[in-house]
Amino acid sequence: MRFGALTALSEVSLRAEPGTVHAVIGPNGAGKSTLFNVISGVYSASAGSVRLGGTTLTGLRPHRITALGVGRAFQNMAASPNESVEENIMLGRHLLTRSGFVSAGLKLPWAVREERLHRARVVEIAEFVGLGHVLHLPLGTLSYGDRKRVEVARALATEPRVLLLDEPVAGMNAEETRRMSEIVLAVRESLGITVLLVEHDMSMIMSVADRISVLDFGRLIADGTPAQIQNDPAVIAAYLGTTAGTDTGAASVRTTASSGHISAGPAHTTAPSQQ
């Protein structure tokens, strides 16, 4: 993926196993959001391919990719603040419903029935993420944590096979983060959906992820289980830098990293979470 002369992602190859929570981490500007935009078709990759099962998604327009089973919840909430929670989630049903201007405008019986069936499913999804009691309130009146869950509910409403979550707990307090973690695990357990997760909150990632890929400057620098990633020297170097800085708290780790002698130990395993 390139923007002019800038290569935002290069030679990133990762594979999310079905039914797992796969986290993508990396410092700011590493290319995580770009990766999501390439997967969901907002950007088209200049080289390489995106595949879902046996289907190639590369080059398809976003609504086609959604139709093939990729749901995405945005980092910066992209829902309509004046619409009710229910309406916002209903948007996710767009591709699963058929009624157009004429059939909806004339309230044809099948269009009315379709609307009713899908509203019932939206209520189920809202209850699944714990939003059942605020369904009819305008989105803008909800708390930050609730709005983030509306994003997730809307992505789930597309009935995806793969769910892309872009920083679902960014800016959340501990309680909200815990609830979101529970939802992510429930999505995997009870719905069997593969979750691809971009997040900065390390303790959240360590508690939900089955596998972690680490990006830095648009390159994949590590890929493995949470335990492997925590002890990976390249990861620690990426997060804390390889040159000496002014931050005395991290200076010792930096020095160690540049000399390439990182070993497993409590001081180092907790280091990434200082980000």
Binding site: G41, P62, H63, A78, A79, L91, H94, L95, R154, T158
Partner: peptide
């Protein structure tokens, strides 16, 4: 409200 969100939701 958001062209990108609309398209990602299938519009």
């Amino acid at each position: 409200d958001s062209e990108i969100a609309a398209s990602v939701n299938g519009v």
